[in-house]
Design a protein around this nucleic acid. Sequence first.
RNA 1: GUGGGUGUAGCUCAGAUGGUAGAGCACCGGGUUGUGGCCCCGGCGGUCGAGGGUUCAAGUCCCUUCACUCACCCCA
Length: 424
Amino acid sequence: MIKLVRGFKDILPADTALWQYVETTLRELLEDFGFAELRIPILEQTELFARSIGANTDIVEKEMYTFADRKGDSLTLRPEATASVVRAYIQHKLYAKDPVWKLYTIGPMFRRERPQKGRYRQFYQINAEVFGLHDPRADAELILLLMTFMRRLELSGIVLHINSLGCPECRPRFKESLKSFLADRSEQLCSDCLGRRDKNPLRIFDCKVPSCKESMQDAPSILDYLCHACQNHFFTVKEILDRFNIPYEINHSLVRGLDYYTRTTFEALAGALGAQDAVAGGGRYDGLVKALGGPDQPGVGFAVGVDRLTELLAGRAQGLEKRPDIFIAAIGERAQDIAFQWVQDFRLQGVRAEIDFENRSLKSQMRRADKFGASYVLIAGDRELDSKAAVLRNMTTKEQKEIPIQDLIGLVVNTIKTSITGSE
RNA sequence: GUGGGUGUAGCUCAGAUGGUAGAGCACCGGGUUGUGGCCCCGGCGGUCGAGGGUUCAAGUCCCUUCACUCACCCCA
């Protein structure tokens, strides 16, 4: 048997309703916030990711699905979406019409990591990106959007972490003092962190090795090194979150793995998920557009992990599945033939109708109708055809009434539609 | 890439010391003339992850391998 590739997964019908629910909920919210959808390819030139994410990040160094196409170009299945959105913003000169754009995109990402709970080699993200705005209200608005979304999904236990990583003005000063802090601490650091010390010292804040954590206790905090502009920016973001009653924790060790972040970074964490607990993350990337060859326009964005979100909502799939409004139980060839016509007629009227082609006993068909959760069953056999009236059974009240075959569709559709609106 | 755990029916799992593969759920059918859920009865369904070895005999013991899973790492 051919099985799916390691780390990939099928999303089966039992779960797709939940996925659709998550996607449409966020989609509607994004559009209320003024975002427009952008659809981008999942394949890009490798260089795009190397230059945006950072050549010496783990993602680029060892997690990308990269291959040479037949012409020899190096292509990569995207490990994240922001780089592509920025590429599109630049390539189509969107900034020329207006530097400010609010864009969202939905789709799969690919990273070749070791799979585990909440981590797949193909995973789905919904990305929101804002271009052209330096104003901290843009950052805050995104966080507001994200947390409103979490609230709308009725997710509790989501913790928001925020931090500021400074800018090219102030971050180098912090890095220097961090380096000198680490210089005489080689014994306390784990082997991974010793490597990070040169490449990307900020990452040491993320390390979970106890001795590293301990020695980082007295490490300098980026927040003490922010320049005036960055301080004010961060202050305003916090102020807005306070004003809108969005609780948050300042986490000065929240550095995030992608090189392009500046100033605000944030993550939404769900404790219930296990080790892979980030359901959303994002931040500001003011230098990225320019670094990729575009104009000097700032950007802010976030990504939501749909796999992890649906995992959190797993218990809530019941109410979401679609049940037929009506099941037609037809007994005998003649009835089956007419019933087949009826099902199609119902469907054209917007009524969810189902039928069984097997011509089984009425009992079987009733069981089937019940299994599907049909609200009504229309019973038709020789008896009904002769008397020119089929039987409509309400499956919850068990009430049955005869419906003249002449105007059957209209009468039944009417009954169903009024019963739906009446019950809500 | 590194560790731990687990692979028996579609699903959840039993099968001490080796001796002809089980249950519940699900599915299909039946329980007198054409009416669902509950209940009762019956049926379908497994090369016990794969390959090799030990043995008269292996789901069970040994080796190899693969997959899944959790954690490290990294991150959505």
